[in-house]
Design a protein around this nucleic acid. Sequence first.
DNA 1: TCTGGGGTCCTAGGACCC
DNA 2: TCTGGGGTCCTAGGACCC
Length: 457
Amino acid sequence: MFALVDGNNFYVSCERVFRPSLVGRPVVVLSNNDGCAIARSNEAKALGVRMGHPWFQCKDFERDHGLVALSANFALYGDMSYRMMVVASSYAPRQENYSIDESFLDFTGVQGDLVVMCRNMRARILQWVGIPCGVGIGPTKTLAKLANYISKTTERKPGSYPERLAQVCHLGAMSQDELHAVFAATDVGEVWGVGKRIGAQLRDGGVSTVLDLVRLDASTVRRHFSVVLEKTVRELQGVQCIEVDDEPAPKQQIMVSRSFGHVVTKGRDLATAITEYTSRAAEKLRGQGSAAGAIVVFIRTSPFRKDDPQYSATVTVPLVRPTADSALLVTSAIAGLRGIYKTGFKYAKAGVMLVDLQSTDVQQMELDFDFIEPLPGPGSEQGSGLSGAAVACHQSGQRDRVKLMSAMDAVNGRYGRGSLKLAGAGLEIDRKGWAMKQERRTPQYTTCWGDMAIVRA
DNA sequence: TCTGGGGTCCTAGGACCC
DNA sequence: TCTGGGGTCCTAGGACCC
């Protein structure tokens, strides 16, 4: 049996831990730049705020219904997630942390009443971490996921399912009749793996509930749709097709991209932003022990500003050899940016993607060909602020560069992100033109000493 | 005025190989 | 008239997830 543990309205619940006055009120957490709603309390959902609802379209709820909107505080959510996962991990031999607010537990070999255990786990997470969870249990991950949906929906919309399925729902412990009744009451679109497109196609074919889907012949589904949906159907039928992955492989690509707080027109500002994003991506890269074989850079205007001239460009810059060196990656990214930047456009977003990732354990050694393809020297990269640093990367110097990067990561780990950075990333004043808008961010209660909550007797 | 930021897997088709 | 058979690798695009 498997369980899926999932924090309710996770980001909102994190905020409520430190601001209990928000309990019972409609609350949303906004995306970067306070653009749209990415988490909603049940009260906000009841008001009609949709997932991804642009904030400027639901702003009136603030005045009319007391809706509270907060900027996303990912430092807080990441830390609360860690705490929740640690508590959950003590209940099962294997755990897969599937997303920031969800983890699968594999109960293989575990004795005892799983419902009792999961109710206990739920209570402990609520008491120790402060986050309310829903738990779904089933013989496959897809069924556990569905059970989780049922547990939360029973709680949020009383009457949709039998009351005892609230909070913890065990589909593997139901009679066939009861299971089918639950399936019949659930829309096919709620199934993990059935999105908008497939959902519509299924409904066109008369398959509108989970019961309809589970009754299909799996191999027919493969012919009409795909092997992916076939697995989903088999999993719903109780045949395990998707394993619990408790040791996720390193990422195959690492992306950092942001929408700007204001539109950007100057190449210089784009270069500063690209430098910062590349540095952040390089940190992630080193964090998983990989090196990148190429870097993709993209810039684009806003598709929502229909009257403005539109421009979007992407360039892939191959690296001479795989590297995790921030300065080398930034040099390449800036070179790529020069190739695609055009004046006269209002840029709204930019980003970088590190691709062709490989482990630094396995390295292709080579003769030193740097004299054939000289790296940029001082002065050749005017304005990027890293030319001096980029010169020294001959093989003999590579070990020192690796040490330099480790030192930088260690300092930033100890004193906070951005304490030590490449000159090209600019000072605070250089970021003014494009930095993210976060006007409603709460303190980083658990990850910053200065923000720690103080209790007064 | 104002619309997020990450990821994965699968498939089809083309280039190329012997 | 008649034009093999089998493979791999890469890329782009589409679907899904949170």
